[in-house]
Design a protein around this nucleic acid. Structure first.
Lengths: 135, 135
DNA sequence: ACAAATTCTACTAATCTTATAGAATAAATA
DNA sequence: TATTTATTCTATAAGATTAGTAGAATTTGT
């Protein structure tokens, strides 16, 4: 299951993308997408640090897309917010870590299946952009 | 990411399956598969309640497969130990729950993508049995 | 009776999730 | 320049989940 944070992140990005380049206020996103405003602030900040969106401060400030919505995949957002897409860390592309209880990675019997799941999940998440989800 | 519990469950089932019908002691599984014994006890109990394995008590007791290893899928184990396979509860087959922040399920823009991920993940997990993983 | 296994219930430390609070900073405008 | 209204930053915290531990009760074979 994805976290609420991830779900909020996607909904927020979809809302910003729908405004077609215009700056969007946190308050508006929070109200329209039913997201607690203070929690949303943190999420938008993470998306900003991840290079997906940018912001302008001050009175007329707000958030806007840095990349094109068609160039931001669900996988990008997932990795930024929820971390590894793989179901076990020893097969993760971006978050690899060896398993402490695994003496030999090559002979691990559950690895192959988890690899298949990872590949299938990734195929969907990488091919789907924020722009794709808007339709 | 799957929980350690889920990983341990799979490794334990694989170990039991490898003994070909014989009863296996918790202690042996724990040692061979590098799983904390007391934690493993709980996991085996859950697998038993889920109808995958059965046990005999007493001096010569132990665990053995109730179903055939070829009839237990990774999806079965996952649902028992880690719960929903779907990434959001509103598309889960076995653990459906509506989203509190979603006014209208049909118009939800992230639902379609999550549905695709679910279908792909499920395809792998349902076609793969414990017996399949042994090779 | 004894030994060795499973069973059952409770507890716990640590981490993660889901927020909330409030002060600091920045920009527009009156 | 003072005010207003945004974002930014840092800290805190309640609740849930994870990953285990502890110990007594029960069962079975010898």
């Amino acid at each position: 299951m994805i976290s609420k944070k991830m779900k909020y992140a996607l909904k927020a990005l979809l809302f910003i993308a729908a405004q077609e380049g215009e700056q969007v206020k946190t308050k508006d996103i929070a109200e329209q997408a039913m997201i607690p405003k203070k929690f949303l602030e943190q999420i938008l900040l993470e998306l900003k640090k991840g290079g997906i969106i940018a912001s302008r401060q001050g009175n007329t400030g707000g958030y806007y897309f840095l990349k094109k919505p068609s160039e931001v995949s669900v996988a990008d957002v997932y990795r930024l917010i929820d971390g590894p897409i793989a179901l076990i860390s020893c097969i993760s592309k971006n978050f690899y870590e060896p398993c402490s209880d695994c003496p030999d990675e090559a002979s691990c019997t559950i690895r192959q299946t988890m690899l298949e799941v990872r590949d299938q999940t990734l195929a969907v998440m990488e091919k789907t952009s924020i722009a794709d989800m808007m339709n």
